[in-house]
Amino acid sequence: METKRNRAFYFVLLPVLAWLMILIFIPHIELLVNSFKVDGQESWTLENYTDFFTNRIYWMTLVKTVSYAIGVTILAFIVAFPVAFYLTKVVSKRYVGPLTMLLLVPLWVGELITIYGWMIILGDHGIINQFLIDLGWIEKPLPLLYNDFSMILGLLYMSVLFMIVPIMSTLESLDDSLIEAASDLGAGKWTIIRRIVIPYAMPGIVSGSIIVFMLVIGDYLAPNILGGKSSLWFTEQIYNQFLSTFNWNEGAAFGFLLLLISSLIVWIALKVSGQKLERVGS
């Protein structure tokens, strides 16, 4: 009996381990080794990493990418929280399914298509500008596309759902009587949200934030297409190292710096919010 269960256990475990080893672990080791080498030299070197810190353009781009990613994460929370609360606590149970489905629709068409959709909406001759001009409210089209505004909108749109779903799943288990009790004891709306709902939803908020932050910091399309002239994203710089400069070693070093910095930020966020990764991850 015992051995049989063990065999089944290993049978399930094996593909997982194989997946991790072959597709994630081994390529990363090769990249890591590459990041300490320079083309045409056998010896190990830190040159690729020092390059990053001595060129202002490289670390500035990373700083910018990280701060924008944090900003988008906060915005995503502000947008997602009321939606999640509405879907779990306010709306009749009958509509929750269809409404959640509607939220998922943009994911089905893929990021590139939604980005082109935003281009049609935001362009100088796009839907919004045309509408405002037809109404006579503005004479010249508003610059909505190809700037930070459109880039943040695009990033937010593709990532906000990953904030909504975890918050919803934690709020679902929140007993309504807790809210009623607080209200009976004289707590106002804000107090209830601040002292009861948000603390209760914290694991969901933190796991949503981690996903959104990681998605945004590693995104390539939205900054590249919607971002316009000055939106150099760090992923684009990695892409350039691999594809334009053919300097894979430096590209690998940049990739590891991105991994390191984003892991560090997630760790700090966990510490600050007092959450544990195991709890957030479940």
């Binding site: 353009i57 500035m60 781009t61 002239k229 000055s230 939106s231 150099l232 684009e236 710089q237 350039n240 334009s244 400069t245 053919f246 300097n247």
Partner: peptide, 17 residues
């Protein structure tokens, strides 16, 4: 030559307007 050009292109892209 492409390494030179690539750096130039990056600096242009990153430059503030």
């Amino acid at each position: 030559f492409e390494a030179i050009e690539s750096k130039v292109l990056e600096r242009i892209k990153a430059a503030e307007v």
